[in-house]
Design a protein around this nucleic acid. Structure first.
Length: 258
DNA sequence: ATGGCTGAGCTACTCAGA
């Protein structure tokens, strides 16, 4: 089974790029973040035409996540954490993989910049609540797959110039510790597990020729619970979509699980 | 490099992103 996570930075502005990508990569499940639209304007029909069902948790203008799937996804939940600002940032659902019932958790973590504002506190509190609820969920189901845009640079190797980001909401130690805390509940950062010393990114800014200069960062992740590790066959960051016309500033990360 | 570039909502300009 192929599961892909992609922050598309507007599903409507990106629809042709996304459809081309699906036709080429044929994911079973596509987890989208930053769809930037409310449910009623989501392009359900475009996905339906090529055989996919859309489960959407939208929001006008900002945020928004969705699960696009060829396989059955049960028990869709849009209330995984209590979000004080009522932002649409998590959608979860269950899939069946042989004997295992897997809980998929698709997230778009708040950015948190600038750090001396309420936005940073919102990110910290959001992550705190998220970790608490993941801990609870693990007690009920040991097969958890968390994917999405974490807005966290886990380690120095995960950004082109760490010094520029160690005071930033994406690279601050306090935030990176939250990522470690999550891992320590019993997860693996699959990309880093399979690529010990490789320096690859999932995001490049639109400005200052960041893409051309490879000034990027790895902030989109797949975390799998230890119980699912034996099922993972590969993980790949696919840079091609970032080089297209009208690209998202993020590129997809592709996981194979059997 | 606290800038510059893109999208949404709206239809001039702000907000948000990372």
């Amino acid at each position: 089974m192929k599961i892909i996570s992609w922050n598309v930075n507007s599903v409507r502005a990106r629809i042709n790029n996304i459809l081309d990508y699906i036709k080429k990569e044929k994911p079973d499940i596509l987890l989208l973040q930053e769809i930037k639209t409310q449910d009623e304007n989501f392009p359900y029909d475009n996905f339906k035409t090529i055989g996919y069902t859309s489960h959407v948790f939208g929001q006008k203008s900002y945020n928004g996540v969705a699960i696009i799937s060829k396989v059955e996804v049960k028990n869709i939940n849009r209330d995984f954490i209590k979000d004080d600002l009522k932002q649409s940032r998590i959608i979860t659902g269950e899939i069946q993989l042989q004997k295992k019932k897997i809980e998929l958790v698709n997230i778009y973590v708040p950015n948190g910049n600038p750090i001396d504002t309420a936005k940073y506190d919102y990110k910290k509190n959001w992550l705190k609540k998220f970790i608490t609820n993941i801990k609870k969920k693990l007690l009920k189901n040991s097969n958890l797959l968390i994917a999405g845009d974490f807005n966290i640079i886990p380690e120095k190797i995960d950004v082109y110039d760490f010094k520029r980001y160690e005071g930033d909401a994406l690279g601050k130690l306090e935030i990176r510790k939250k990522f470690r805390e999550l891992i320590n509940l019993g997860f693996e950062d699959v990309y880093r597990l399979k690529n010990k010393d490789k320096q690859e990114y999932t995001f490049w800014d639109y400005f200052a020729s960041s893409w051309q200069k490879n000034y990027g960062m790895r902030i989109d992740h797949f975390l799998v619970s230890n119980n699912l590790l034996e099922n993972i066959t590969s993980i790949n960051i696919n840079k091609k979509p970032r080089s297209k016309i009208k690209p998202s500033d993020h590129t997809p990360i592709e996981l194979k699980i059997n």
